[in-house]
Design a protein around this nucleic acid. Structure first.
Length: 485
DNA sequence: TGAAATGTTGGGGCG
DNA sequence: ACGCCCCAACATTTC
């Protein structure tokens, strides 16, 4: 233990005090600790933080600052280029060491190089820790030593690997430097929407911050874990963990989730299937980061070369209809409206809406990726781009191109009683279960009884499924070898 | 982590 | 009684 120069803990996507290796390492030095978050707005270019992410970040920082204050320290907020602000903080604090959790987006890796170079010039060392993932992307390797390109063998390797270390508890006290550093007031960052304030639905749904994350995990393990295997695909019931935005910002670590789930499944015996399925979803997140690390072009370019010449359409009216949830397909519109209202969408419905944009509307997957990036509170460069490429068929381990969801059948299969559609598309609420996923099949009498006027209170289908399916198959055949159209 | 088209089978109606 | 057809149910193949 020394009590020399302060150590800087630089928060990025690990906005928590428990199981935070960078923080633990800093506290363990015995030195005073400067805790900082630096908002680098232009970072990421087209992939700079979206609107929903801004909203979440505001509240998460607020929560983190309060938790730090309760431990006798302060969160220092700074705005500017990482490569400028980190050296400035180090100079002001007289720090010679910076500890941080690692980040993985290509623009972040690029920026980190500049940060390290700038700090080194000032004689400041920076050390990264595994914080946002169970395993570093370079540590999971095939027999041949290369990266995995297919999920199933990747997941086998993860389950066979040593588990991540047991999570640590939050430090009781975090020694503050003798002289506090000044920082921005969070409000001056103007991260919250004002005109209009579209965040009402987000406030109703979410409690950003470490405490909210822990509560979400606890409630999920107690109430939904056993049924997760079957129920996770049903958007009409609360069957999923909704941990994704908390994981995205690191308000909870995947290692905490991993160990808590194992602890919950241990006494369950035969009922542990739900837990196993849930862990696999956590491993999908790891796999996305693994792919992003090894294929940094993933957010922008198809991983399969032949998709570079795919004949996408350019149809802004259709794109807007999809964004606003007025495609005329109830399950699609319900999903897009859930996204807009709450900043989140059920995973099954993400697949349905994504498939609709790509295959029914034949719009580029990047257009959907960009919309999700702006509107999802869990928007994450790895999961978002990997999942869009998966649906498009352009990814490393992607769904085959001919797998085209029928939005009616998907709705009837996974929202059989129409609960989900009725929640988010209330103008259809009075239709019977048999018609709610296909209002165009209703008789005039049935429509009248339900108060539905197609084309007026609810749109006609933007495209006919049979036609769209054939069009998509033709377009996809045109880029496949030996199947030129 | 599909859907549609096509093929097969077997029960039952009916001449 | 028998063959024929229809078609639902299920299986297989194709997109």
């Amino acid at each position: 233990m020394d009590s020399g120069a302060p150590v800087i803990v630089w928060f990025r996507q690990d906005l928590r005090l428990a199981d935070n290796p960078a923080l633990d390492a800093a506290v363990a030095t015995g030195s005073p600790v400067v805790l900082a978050y630096v908002l680098d707005e232009p970072l990421g270019g087209a992939w700079r933080l979206g609107g929903a992410s801004h909203w979440w970040l505001h509240h998460s920082l607020e929560s983190l600052a309060a938790a730090i204050a309760a431990r006798g320290n302060a969160l220092v907020l700074r705005r500017g280029s990482w490569a400028t602000e980190l050296p400035r903080l180090a100079r002001e604090a007289g720090a010679t060491r910076v500890f941080c959790g690692r980040v993985y987006a290509p623009w972040e890796r690029e920026a980190d190089k500049a940060v390290a170079a700038a700090l080194q010039q000032d004689g400041v060392a920076i050390e990264g820790f595994t914080s946002a993932l169970l395993h570093e992307p370079w540590s999971i390797r095939t027999q041949g030593g290369g990266p995995y390109g297919v999920y199933t063998p990747f997941s086998r390797a993860v389950f066979a690997a040593d588990p991540p270390p047991e999570p640590s508890a939050a430090p009781k006290r975090i020694a503050a430097p003798a002289k506090a550093l000044h920082g921005d007031a969070l409000q001056t960052w103007a991260l919250l929407p004002t005109k209009p304030d579209w965040a009402g639905g987000l406030r109703d749904e979410w409690q950003p911050g470490e405490a909210g994350a822990a509560a979400r995990l606890k409630g999920f393990l107690a109430k939904a874990l056993d049924r997760y295997g079957e129920a996770r695909n049903l958007p009409g019931i609360a069957s999923t963990s909704k941990l994704s935005p908390h994981l995205r910002w690191g308000e909870i670590s995947p290692a905490q989730v991993w160990h808590a789930t194992h602890a919950a499944m241990a006494p369950r015996g035969a009922a542990k299937q739900g837990a196993q399925t849930f862990l696999k979803e956590l491993v999908w997140r790891e796999f996305s980061y693994h792919l992003l690390w090894h294929r940094p072009e993933m957010p922008d370019a198809p991983l399969r070369q032949e998709f570079a010449k795919f004949p996408w359409r350019n149809d802004n009216a259709a794109r807007r209809a999809w964004q606003q949830g007025r495609t005329g397909y109830p399950i699609v519109d319900a999903g897009m409206r859930q996204l807009w209202r709450t900043g989140w969408m059920h995973n099954r419905v993400r697949m349905i809406t994504a498939s609709f944009l790509i295959k029914q509307l034949l719009l580029p997957w990047q257009a959907g990726e960009a919309w999700f990036w702006d509107t999802l509170v869990d928007a994450d460069a790895a999961s978002n781009s990997a999942s869009w490429q998966w649906v498009a068929g352009s990814g490393a381990d992607a769904a085959p191109y001919f797998r085209i969801f029928n939005p009616v059948l998907q709705g009837e299969k996974f929202d059989t009683d129409g609960t989900y559609v009725r929640t988010f598309v209330p103008e259809l609420a009075k239709l019977s279960n048999a018609l709610i996923h296909r209002p165009w099949d209703a008789s005039e009498q049935e429509l009248r009884d339900a108060g539905v006027v197609l084309g007026k209170t609810y749109p006609h289908p933007i495209v006919e499924h049979g036609f769209a399916r054939a069009r998509a198959l033709e377009a996809l055949a045109s880029i496949s070898k030996g199947k030129a159209a």
